[in-house]
Amino acid sequence: MTEEHLTTDQLGDRVWAILAATAEGRDADVDELLVALPWPDLITVVCGLGALATGAVAGHAGIDHTTARGRVADAARGLLADRIAQRERPDQ
């Protein structure tokens, strides 16, 4: 980690760089893009990635942009609950 904080524009660039590296399966590059960030900047980048994901999921599901955040959050919580329930079920 470093103590040098990035500008808002630089953090936005980092979000897009992580998206590109992830899409290409370059995990080592993602690590390099995250490892040196101070905690507040890391949180900003993670929130930026979450915002991109929310928009992508909303668009894929045909959810109106004005209600996207709440509906995507509800859907994500439902999927998370399903995943947990599946892990907690005894093998059949």
Rank of each mutant, 00 (worst) to 15 (best):
R26P: 00
D29Q: 08
D41I: 01
A36M: 08
Q92A: 15
E32Y: 09
Q10R: 06
D91C: 15
G50M: 04
P38W: 08
E32P: 07
T66N: 12
R87Q: 09
G12L: 13
G78P: 05
G62F: 00
L11W: 08
L33G: 11
L80G: 05
A85L: 13
A75R: 05
R14M: 10
L52H: 15
A61T: 08
A56P: 03
G70C: 04
T2R: 05
V35Y: 00
R71G: 09
C47W: 05
W39N: 15
T54H: 02
A17R: 13
D91S: 11
G70H: 05
L6K: 07
L80P: 08
G50N: 15
P38I: 06
E24I: 03
A21C: 02
P40K: 07
R26S: 04
Q10D: 04
G48N: 01
R83L: 00
A56S: 14
R83M: 08
T2K: 11
A85D: 06
A36L: 06
A53K: 06
A76H: 03
A81V: 13
L79C: 11
G62I: 02
T54I: 11
I18R: 09
E24T: 13
E32R: 12
L11F: 00
G25Y: 07
G48W: 03
T22R: 14
A36C: 10
G55S: 09
I43P: 13
Q10N: 07
D64T: 14
A85I: 07
L52Q: 11
L6C: 05
T44P: 10
T2G: 07
T2P: 15
A56M: 14
G55I: 09
A73T: 03
A28N: 05
A21G: 04
D82R: 14
Q92G: 14
G59E: 03
A21M: 02
A81N: 07
E24H: 03
T7V: 11
G62H: 06
A81T: 12
T7N: 01
V30Q: 02
A51F: 01
